[in-house]
């Protein structure tokens, strides 16, 4: 199988590639349009800042390419947020695949630090992406912004209130947590993504 990981100006893009290698899957880190279009799966990873990432994608016409892919696509963390309609982070218009919007966390009680860093539970799981994953499984999160809940929500997490920790529409999937760093649970989710029929 031919898996492409989108290479752009965000951090941690390599750790997804390393994790797939550990699962015995070779993936190409690329920003080449042809390679991305012909891949069997596309992974859109990254941690970083929304507006500079969007600008980078627009400058390379990757924004147009990303919204028109036919194969299964998985956005991770910032990747998922950029697939939403809008991010409050520097007032950024995003790709608009998911109509949900991305807002900054607001502490509702003492001890809720921002960004959220660490392991949190995923609940209300509602997608083949979570086959074999238990309700309330722990995943690793690092995020200062989060997507609202909406019609595309397929998993919820509670931090400063409940938000979308995963979204899905057509061939597009997004997860706020880092499956590549989420131990056996994360590996299972990545395997499920790879096994989505196409």
């Amino acid at each position: 199988m031919n898996i492409a990981i989108l290479k752009y100006n965000a951090g941690n893009v390599r750790s997804v590639q390393i994790t797939l290698e550990r699962l015995g899957i070779m993936a190409t880190l690329t920003d080449d349009h042809e390679v991305l279009l012909s891949a069997d799966r596309v992974i859109f990873p990254g941690v970083g800042e929304a507006s500079s990432a969007m600008k980078y994608l627009q400058d390379r016409k990757l924004d147009k390419l990303l919204i028109d892919l036919k194969q299964p696509v998985l956005g991770i963390c910032l990747g998922m947020q950029l697939m939403c309609s809008y991010s409050e982070e520097n007032n950024t218009t995003c790709l608009g695949l998911f109509e949900e919007t991305v807002l900054k966390f607001k502490s509702t009680q003492a001890g809720e630090k921002i960004p959220q860093i660490g392991w949190n539970t995923i609940e209300c799981l509602n997608s083949p992406l979570f086959n074999g994953v238990e309700e309330g499984a722990y995943c690793y999160f690092v995020n200062g912004y989060r997507a609202d809940k909406g019609i595309h929500t397929i998993a919820e997490t509670n931090y400063c209130g409940s938000y979308s920790s995963a979204l899905h529409i057509r061939n597009y999937y997004g997860v706020q947590f880092h499956p590549e760093k989420s131990a056996a649970v994360g590996s299972k989710i990545l395997e499920n993504f790879i096994n989505i029929p196409f």
């Binding site: 390393i18 550990r22 760093k181």
Partner: peptide, 8 residues
């Protein structure tokens, strides 16, 4: 280490 473990 990165190729061996699946936690941060």
């Amino acid at each position: 280490v990165a190729h061996t473990i699946n936690i941060p």
